[in-house]
Amino acid sequence: MVKKYTVAIVASAMLLLTGCSQKSDVDASAQKGAESADSKLNQLGAGDGMMKLSDEEMKAQLIKDLEGKVESVYFAFDKYNITDESNSKISANSKLLGEGKAGELKIRIEGNCDEWGTDEYNYALGLKRAKASQDAMIASGTSADRISIVSYGESNPVCTEHNKECWAKNRRADFKLLP
């Protein structure tokens, strides 16, 4: 009984295989006169090019990431001395910006002031804040050659309301990165 079933299954399988072989032969003969549409497709690369960033794009991405991590430091009214809290932030910034590819980037420290005073003095005050931050960065191990400073006086506010909390946010030094 078992023998009968085995013979039947083997016979059926042979029929199926024979059938498939015949269909394949038909298709192959039909392709002989067809025009290929895949010549350009065959020239395509492995398909990973779309994900590849240029060096410039990678640097821009790195700068964006790092600028999201570095911390600004803040100053008291009419002052440009670095507090202990600010010094800790600057040390952390210095460490972060010295690691790996970040260490190849230039750093621009921008000094800023609150809205009190539209005078040249405010620009000088912003510059001294940037300079004090630069000195602290150098003391934390960052090469002086990598750092430039600039002052925007009261012209680069992050907060435009007219209250003490807002003014305090504007008395700051920002750490920007350049390729």
């Binding site: 620009y123 510059l127 300079k131 400073i149 002052s151």
Partner: peptide
């Protein structure tokens, strides 16, 4: 750092500038 022209001499030939070539205004 910074740069501003604060004043001009009477004859217009000299400027008083605030500059910071070494980071000091």
């Amino acid at each position: 750092g910074m740069l501003s022209c604060s004043d001009v001499s009477e004859d217009g030939t000299k400027l008083l500038l605030t500059m910071a070539p070494k980071g000091q205004p």
